[in-house]
Simulated assay, not measured.
Amino acid sequence: MAKADASKLDWNNLGFEYMDLPYRYTAHWKDGEWQDGGLTEESTLHISEASPVLHYGQSAFEGMKAYRTPDNHIQLFRPDQNAARFKRSCERLLMPVFPEDKFVDAVKQVAKANADFVPPYGNGGTLYIRPLIIGTGGVIGVHQAPEYIFTIFAMSVGNYFKGGLTPVNFTTSAYDRAAHKGTGQAKVGGNYAASLLPAENAHENGFADCVYLDPVEHKYIEEVGSANFFGITKDGVFKTPKSPSILPSVTKYSLLWLAENRLGLGASEEKIDVNDLDQFAEAGACGTAAVISPLGGLEHNGKLHVFHSETEVGPVTKKLYDTLTGIQFGTVEAPEGWVQRVE
């Protein structure tokens, strides 16, 4: 694949696809320690055919974005939270932790080096940043790798779901996303590989994606595809599911805080029964890639429950979206420590 050329990008029609940008950051762990890392133009990783990442899925990643502000600066949204979650994912899979301060610094280096690919302010585009760690080296027994590669690459992106802030319909899945004592709270590759078939089934039936229920009773909402669920109750409470197998979303916890402290709503993280959808006036999915995707309706056991509308975003969801993206793009005052400037 040829290197991307910023001068040839159509900023108003970006998708959510891989691009080979000029620079990425790479560091290697071997002999029990991290070697000095740095920026590189090499976009191909060379690893042993016996690397544990290939056989046993020893890998973890993060999803982040860099935003162009109206005064043409570039900033990150809560990168320290991604660094902390990356640390927890590494610990879960017995991988060496890349120091959190160096993680944030490396992300800034990648964003700055690829500054030409951060979309201009006003079109909704962002620079999506993907930190990744994989277990490498010649290992065939089931145990952790002797070596690791940590890398960060980036790409210019538009909306994750086509249509942007437009309601889409989902359906519940009979498959489990993760077990309560499994790797659901870690952002690891295997969780997403297991989601491909349920998502494909949902697409074939005309839905944007599927909603996973809890793996024990199959009645409590867990995740919406690869995003977190939230609902706005008819009496003004922002609710989001609580479960030991849900990935702790930086976006979700940001919305929880904003709902209570900026919008004056109640805010609660609790079990949400899929049979109790009537309590919600609005609902949506949230995450770094999707930001917020309104749920028009949710099909369960052959019946479609419609929330606010199948065609129009609800007023509270729109206000949450405007507040969150305003902070991310620098037009709304951010809570202390939520944004970090790159340049």
Rank of each mutant, 00 (worst) to 15 (best):
A2D: 11
A2W: 06
A2M: 09
K3C: 12
D5N: 13
K8Q: 15
L9S: 00
D10M: 03
E17Q: 15
M19E: 13
Y23K: 11
H28P: 02
G32A: 09
W34P: 06
D36P: 07
G38Q: 13
T40N: 07
T40R: 08
H46D: 06
H46L: 12
H46T: 13
H46Y: 05
A50K: 09
G57D: 08
S59C: 06
A60E: 10
G63I: 00
Y67Q: 06
D71K: 05
N72I: 06
H73Y: 03
L76H: 01
F77S: 01
R78C: 04
P79E: 05
Q81P: 01
R85M: 10
R88C: 03
P96N: 04
F98T: 03
F98I: 02
K102M: 08
D105V: 05
D105Y: 06
D105W: 04
Q109Y: 04
K112C: 06
A115T: 04
F117I: 02
V118F: 00
G122M: 06
T126S: 07
I133C: 07
I133M: 13
I134H: 01
G135C: 12
T136M: 05
G137N: 09
G137S: 07
G137D: 07
V142F: 14
P146L: 06
E147D: 14
F150M: 09
I152D: 00
A154S: 11
M155E: 12
S156R: 05
N159Q: 09
G164F: 07
T166F: 01
F170S: 03
S173G: 09
H180G: 07
K181I: 06
G182F: 01
G182A: 10
N191W: 01
A199H: 13
A199E: 11
E200S: 14
N205A: 12
V211M: 13
V211K: 04
V211S: 06
L213S: 03
D214T: 05
E223D: 14
N228E: 10
F229V: 02
F230K: 03
I232T: 07
T233I: 07
D235L: 11
F238K: 10
K239V: 15
T240H: 04
P241C: 09
P241G: 10
K242L: 15
S243L: 14
P244I: 15
S245Q: 14
I246V: 13
I246W: 08
I246F: 11
L247R: 00
P248L: 04
Y253A: 10
Y253Q: 15
S254I: 04
L255E: 08
L256V: 11
L256T: 11
L258K: 01
L258T: 02
E260G: 10
E260Y: 02
G264W: 05
G264N: 09
E269G: 05
L277M: 13
Q279A: 13
A281E: 14
A281R: 14
A281T: 13
E282W: 00
G284W: 00
V291N: 00
L295M: 14
L298F: 03
K303T: 15
K303M: 12
F307I: 01
E312H: 14
P315T: 14
K319V: 00
T323A: 07
T323Q: 11
L324P: 01
G326A: 05
P335V: 09
P335Y: 03
G337E: 11
G337D: 14
V339R: 04
Q340S: 15
Q340E: 12
E343K: 14
